[in-house]
Amino acid sequence: MISQNKVFDTKVLRKTVLDMAFAGSTVHIGCAFSIIELLAVLYRNHLRYPDNDPQALDRDYFILSKGHGVMAQYACLRELGWLKDEAFTGYFADGSDLKGLSDSRILGLEVTSGSLGHGFSVGVGMAMGVKLRGTNQKTYALVGDGEINEGPIWEGALFAAHHELKNFMVIVDENGFQAMGSTQDVLKLGSIQAKFESFGFEAITIDGHNEEAIDTAIKQLWASASVSPKALIAKTVKGKGVPFMENNNIWHYTRLDSETYAQALSSVSESEQ
């Protein structure tokens, strides 16, 4: 049973990201927007935090391995009441807590990321711990498609399959871009589903902005009788929700000014759910 009972309206989450990105004059907006629906579905329907406690010993583990999307996670933690509004209006103020990349000292963030290819292995370790304990906690590690250039991802994939970590799920945000260009141009990935399948994962590819499809796929993977670890490949759009940011990789590094902020807010509020 999910205790949070919150809406996680994706329009609200995107608005929160825009507000904080503008307040902090920060980057990585596109990275956050591609995972909004994934996070909304996970927090709304799947992640169990008994008593709404981010430190509950029997919680599910959600690891944002691609720390560059952390603003999307901050927006969800705000919905949960774990982060206060002041943290958003004062984003990047001197002496403030919330950093531009995830930091595990923030309640609700399980790992410190930003250096890529770390969180996946930490998640595999957590899932191994869950298996040794014999509990039924789920561990999710959300990685970027650029991030899976990193070798430790594939070291961890071998381990997860060998040890039949059936309660471990990697979610790949396949938005097709990394910092300096398209994944196709930088380092071709081929079929991510086929890669994880060849490592022994049970994998499904879905539209990562279709909340119903995300929810169904997660349920389907967990319902499997297989002892394999799971892989959910989410085809997403970097910058999703704001037309001038979509598939425009300059929004990995571009900062909002008053004009683009207003335009983006208006796009988000007018968009279809």
């Binding site: 292995s121 595999v124 370790g125 899932a127 191994m128 711990g129 961890g156 071998l158």
Partner: peptide, 26 residues
């Protein structure tokens, strides 16, 4: 035997996993 894990020739993953195991109380 149940407390022995050969993580393979994959040191980076092994240390990340150790962090995850420590977070899970090991």
């Amino acid at each position: 035997p149940a407390q022995y894990i050969n993580a393979g020739i994959a040191e980076q993953n092994m240390v990340g996993m150790a962090a995850g195991l420590a977070r899970a109380g090991f």
